[in-house]
């Protein structure tokens, strides 16, 4: 299953025109794994999780995100406030060092899928586009499934 997510950007880039060369570059230089998104109803929120590895020789910055199922898409982090409350904050311009991983997992960093445009049920898939300053567009397709 992991190979599907790793190879998908490469396959898409091979099928696309030359104006999308950044996707090819991104697929060669980055990889993703352990990808999934939560089921949720239209209009609600969901989250997507995966691990992205920056295999470039330089640090990279995640400038923006988008998806095919939400009106807004951001990188968020769950954290504990100083007074003991569970909170969530947007993480803008997240830096991924060379050969380091951006780990998105429950209770930590996650792709925030806000205002879903349709229901997400088990068996569906979500496409998230990550726009990196160096790697360019990285397209990640993740399956929708309940948490274990």
């Amino acid at each position: 299953m992991k190979n599907i997510f790793i190879l998908l950007p490469l396959i898409l880039s091979l099928l696309s025109c030359t104006s999308q060369k950044k996707e090819a570059s991104a697929s060669v230089n980055g990889s993703t794994s352990e990808a999934w998104a939560r089921p949720a109803a239209k209009g609600a929120m969901s989250a997507a999780y995966f691990t992205y590895t920056n295999t470039l020789d330089t640090a990279d910055t995640l400038s923006s995100l988008s998806s095919n199922v939400s009106m807004m898409t951001q990188l968020h982090e769950s954290y504990m406030t100083d007074d003991g409350l569970a909170g969530m904050r947007e993480m803008k311009n997240q830096v991924v060092e060379s050969n380091e991983q951006l780990v998105l997992e429950p209770g930590g960093l996650h792709v925030m899928l806000m205002r879903l445009t349709n229901d997400l049920a088990e068996g569906d898939s979500v496409t998230v586009t990550l726009n990196f300053a160096q790697a360019g567009e990285v397209v990640v397709t993740v399956p929708v499934k309940p948490a274990n």
Partner: peptide, 24 residues
């Protein structure tokens, strides 16, 4: 159980979206 409004933003339609800090 305590809550407080934290992150608040607007989408492209001008709709307010807010989140809550909360007891876990």
């Amino acid at each position: 159980v305590r809550t407080q409004v934290s992150l608040s933003t607007e989408n492209e339609n001008g709709e307010k979206i807010y989140f809550l800090n909360h007891s876990d």
